[in-house]
Design a protein around this nucleic acid. Structure first.
Lengths: 336, 336
DNA sequence: ATGAAAGCGCTAACAT
DNA sequence: ATGTTAGCGCTTTCAT
């Protein structure tokens, strides 16, 4: 910068004014721009950040990006941030609190202006401290109990589960299995069970998945079918598990949805086009990302802490081809 | 930091030594740590970066994160970077050169120590300049012609297409359609066509997708089936399109693979568990990410420019349930 | 509209 | 092992 100033015959300050688009006489502007071009000058953003105290970067914590739900969220957040002139520093939590805590220290040491945290991850204890230190934080897609001192944008997971449960119940399903990411997804299951309150939903029919991918859903659904061959419906606590569950049902010689209905959760992009197209609880991801980013950046821009609000978006049920009325007969299903 | 020093009765330098784990007398260490704890001191990473010239952050450009191929790559890169003490600054290119260029300016102005760029994106012209300015850059998953001055880790896309083509040809397929993301995926198609060299592969049977999601694949495959009802195989230039293609084939009353074989590209996680499980070209994503990160960080750590190498990993064909021998009879397919 | 001076918080280099 | 000095590159404040 000093070099540019010298070459243009002005001071650093004038160069700074040119770079940041302040009022400069056209004549001076030309001189300075010429010098900038000749020297290939690029302002050092780190120095600017040190001086201004702002990095124009927002940190985002997600459990994983490989998970389609979160990758769609990340995409949306990145777009929103860039649109408002911020960069995205991405960190995965891997559901590992120690690891996450270490990363948290890093980012909040002035590397980022604010923090967006998706999904419960065992660092709930640390987060309120940040808020107290006047560091803007917003939570979203939070299924457990979030700290009360921080703003949250999420959905009512219990209600979402209730939506799926009511639907299955109204279709006449009584023998329902749940395959689940436990314990994280417990609220969805509680909601589902509430829909069956009168009839009960056998607690033994909740199967924890060993892995949170399609293979895990496949295995858990297989176990469920073995435990109760009269099963007429499977609720998967997220879509990827549901994809594996459909496969398991078909492999067992049953049909979806004729013999067994399968309902998922999240409505990730792919499941609308698989066969059979998946009936699932649609999570308004984009709207959630928008609200969370909006909330956070408003705080950053104004220099005040974010509004402490719990904003619950409404999930909906998207009915496709993987679900239908419960089979009436109790005979063994077959290829007959 | 000055406050901590004052409170501990030492100088800033000593505090700095404590924070960065240098040799300090146990006695002093205790005093300083006490002061740090009492004041809740956290080092300012921006100031450190200004001084040391290093941000411990690597920028990653990908076309999109919502795309499963790239989200798997991002996940892997993030894990590798964190393992080596670096943060990840993520930027999507959206295949928009202007947008990407702007973002590039940003990141290279000392916000990141190095840059990893995945997927052709129209900024090839800008990248060599960075290398000249001694800024470490590595390219990967690059299908077009990369700048010769920059290191690349990728696969031989033509050969990968050839793999798929040879397989289909050996199974007796002669009426093959291609549904594609054009023009980006041309090399894969060239390779596929090479496998059919003797017999020719009708150029009119290449269908560009209007969108790069399953819906685009669905539409393109539908058009292909209409253009040639005697089709026995469809090659999709990436897996997500293939998922849509399978759906289109089934909707047309044909069976996969009995009437029409479908082969994809990338081997993203989901396609091993859909029904039918997809035959696809397996892209060694993890290995690619590892090599690229390794190459780049070695350069950063040593302070020298990265080795200018073109490293081509070997793709393989993963045969699952969506492909089989070509139908012999030329009668119209049916549900008969 | 431009110049001069000061300092953001840290670490490198040298001195002790 | 610790203290002293200087400066990374920028912006803010005040003066002109």
């Amino acid at each position: 910068m000093a070099d540019v100033a010298a070459r243009a015959g002005v001071t650093k300050q004038t160069v700074s004014n040119v770079v940041s688009g302040k009022k400069v006489r056209p004549e001076t502007l030309a001189k300075v721009n010429k010098a900038i071009a000749e020297l290939g000058y690029k302002p050092n953003l780190v120095a600017r950040s040190l001086r201004t105290g702002s990095t124009s970067t927002v940190g985002l914590f997600v459990p994983s990006v490989a998970n389609a739900f979160y990758s769609e969220v990340v995409e949306e957040v990145e777009n929103l941030l860039v649109g408002r002139g911020y960069n995205l520093l991405l960190a995965t939590t891997r559901d590992d609190p120690d690891y996450t805590r270490a990363h948290l220290e890093n980012l909040t040491a002035r590397s980022v202006d604010a923090l967006l945290v998706a999904g419960d991850n065992g660092v709930e204890q640390q987060l309120p401290m940040l808020a107290e230190a006047n560091f803007p934080v917003a939570l979203f897609a939070w299924e457990g109990d979030p700290p009360t001192t921080l703003p949250v944008v999420s959905i009512d997971y219990q209600h979402a589960g209730f939506l799926a449960g009511s639907y299955l119940r109204d279709l006449g399903h009584r023998n329902v299995a749940v395959i689940a990411d436990l314990p994280a997804h417990t609220p969805r299951i509680v909601g589902l069970r509430r829909a069956f309150a009168a009839d009960g939903l056998d607690e033994r029919m909740v199967f924890a998945c060993t892995s949170d991918d399609a293979a895990g859903g496949f295995a858990a659904a297989g176990a469920a079918l073995e435990a109760d061959p009269e099963l007429t419906a499977i609720f998967a606590t997220h879509d990827v598990l549901a994809v594996g569950a459909i496969e398991a049902v078909v492999r067992s010689g049953r049909r979806v949805p004729d013999d067994v209905s399968v309902v998922g959760f999240d409505d990730i992009a792919q499941v609308g086009r698989i066969r059979p197209a998946l009936t699932t609880v649609t999570f308004p991801k984009r709207e959630m990302a928008q609200q969370a980013v909006e909330l956070l950046l408003r705080a950053v821009d104004s220099g005040r802490p974010p509004t402490n609000v719990v904003s619950l978006l409404r999930p909906t049920l998207t009915i496709r081809d993987s679900s239908g009325p419960a089979r009436r007969d109790r005979s063994a299903p077959g290829t007959a």
